[in-house]
Amino acid sequence: MQQFLNVTLTGLGQGAIYAAFALALVLIWRSTRIVNFAQGAMAMFTTYLALTVIEAGQSYWVGLIVALAGGLLMGAVVERLVIRPVEGGPELNAVIVTLGLFVAIQALAAILFGSTFKSFPAPFDLRGFTVGEVNIAFTPNSIYVILAVVVVMVALVALFRFTDLGLKMRAAAFSQEVSRLLGVRVGRMLTLGWALAAVVGSLAGLLIAGGSLVYPAYMDGVVVFGFVAATLGGLDSPGGAVVGGLSIGLLLSYVSGYLGSELVALAALAILVAVLLVRPQGIFAKAAARRV
């Protein structure tokens, strides 16, 4: 019973992070119909930036700001320089470009920051709360992680629902041509979309790193889990990404807790294939038909 509780709580914390990462994938998918396979590598890179700042004596929070700002810049630059030319082209080309970025950024990080494992600080206590006599796997840091993800989601919802900029970004994502006819600078909106997504991705990378080890490949699994979560929710649906992220976090936590952590990625694959074959439009998508 206690193990079940602990596995569940761990899963929720992980799930919140996968949700954020999936949300970043969905933001990009909605605006450019591209799955950014480089997103994990980009987040890994900005986490290293934060670590560099922190190791130089700054606080965690300065590191956080550096990572998020780095993500913003990186997302914008990547979209402008390498994604723009393949937007709207054959879908395989865009996939290959993001994979190339993935490999290149990962190698670059290894060159700049080294390939060894480094520990990344957590801003809050990593010891679990004690309920009665029992110590549970829920820590002050878990609360921070979940709160951070919630704050970002609320901010994104507010941006897209209530501001003119958000409206223009959504319009540009849904219909480039009509948006241009309405004076929306579609190119700028797409750049902004990539930049915002990279910020959310960077946050996810930083939250995963907190209190654990970073190395250039530490986000590889998260890319897969985030993609599975996004697909589970329907790549088009931000709400679906959140629910998908939480579900994947829980499911994988059970697999890891009861079957073995080596099987987590395979379990993710099984979930993905099951979803794509049984309900390809995702569990939460509004549109009935989707070509997968």
Binding site: D164, F174, L182
Partner: peptide, 24 residues
Amino acid sequence: HVPEGRGVITELTVEENLRLGALL
């Protein structure tokens, strides 16, 4: 330019479609 056929952004609400015109 009011384009042929598909000028409505169907994923947005009526009001949001109109707001885009008003923003311009």
